[in-house]
């Protein structure tokens, strides 16, 4: 009882910069517990991030960490994994990082099925830069760049990853803190690309501009609780009942050949040809 987070934190960097009620801290906690539960060696874990609120996470974590350019977390993570496939590479990204500027890296890393565990903290907004609309902002929501309501339908990150060929795709919300941990642990067990999408709140940049629905950050957590439905509970339910619901749990798991394994075969073949 009583988990010792301090073992994995750079205590001198704390408290973190995230706003009161932000879900990123919950994701960070769950990631720490998942790494501990999976028994990964602290010195063999690499946490890579891009730019954004959640991308500040590696700064607080006491692993090998890499804070890179906007949207390119997966590109750098691919490089790390290729250089040493025995490392446990974890990429932490926001929704803007993953599916806006880094959209192309994202779909091709899914397709390649390289052994990177990717945690996408989806808070439906660009929080750090002042609450601009992101590709996951719900239709009709007010943001600083859509003051009369958002006219674009949002991306479904998990569905995109499944379509792009990821071998493990799971989704949950920051309200379901224990589930985040479980899903990340099973993501570690999958040999290949694992995506864990965590839907979270951003009250300061998103909720505050949609006061009709959200009086405080707590309303955003309540909404997560009310709209979430486990994937096992959706079976046999008509589509009309699932409208407006967020399916959580393991959405897709189909083991495929892992990229660094396949690339090793290429290396062996090429080395053999040269020696003849």
């Amino acid at each position: 009882m009583g988990f010792d987070y301090m073992k994995y934190l750079r205590e001198e960097k704390m408290p973190h910069i995230w706003c009161p009620g932000c879900g990123h801290g919950i994701v960070m906690k769950a990631l720490i517990r998942a790494i501990d539960k999976a028994g990964l060696d602290q010195d063999r874990v690499v946490v890579v991030s891009g730019i954004g609120c959640v991308s500040r996470m590696p700064g607080y974590l006491d692993f090998n960490t890499l804070h890179t350019t906007h949207g390119r977390a997966l590109a750098f993570a691919t490089g790390v994994k290729m250089a040493d496939p025995t490392l446990h590479v974890i990429a932490v990204m926001g929704d803007g990082d993953a599916v806006a500027i880094g959209g192309n890296h994202f779909i091709h890393t899914c397709r390649r099925n390289i052994g990177i565990t990717t945690v996408v903290a989806n808070n439906s907004i660009y929080g750090m830069t002042g609450g601009q609309r992101s590709p996951t902002t719900p239709l009709g929501d007010n943001t600083s760049t859509t003051v009369y309501g958002n006219a674009d339908p949002p991306f479904d990150i998990s569905a995109l990853a499944v379509a792009a060929g990821a071998s493990y795709v799971a989704r949950t919300t920051t309200y379901h803190a224990q589930q985040i941990e479980r899903l990340i642990v099973s993501g570690f067990e999958n040999r290949g690309f694992s995506l864990i999408e965590v839907i979270g709140p951003c009250f300061v940049a998103h909720g505050r501009r949609n006061r009709a629905r959200y009086k405080s950050n707590l309303d955003m957590y309540r909404e997560e609780k009310e709209t979430a439905i486990n994937v096992t509970a959706t079976k046999g339910k008509p589509q009309s009942e699932l409208m407006g619901k967020v399916t959580i749990g393991v959405l897709h798991h189909a083991p495929m050949p892992e990229f660094t394994d396949e690339y090793q075969k290429v290396i062996e073949k090429a080395t053999h040809v040269r020696t003849i």
Partner: peptide, 19 residues
Amino acid sequence: NRCMLCELRCPDFAIEVSE
């Protein structure tokens, strides 16, 4: 009742429940 939900959900690592 030591359900730990406060500790699990505290985003700021500010609350800890133990025996």
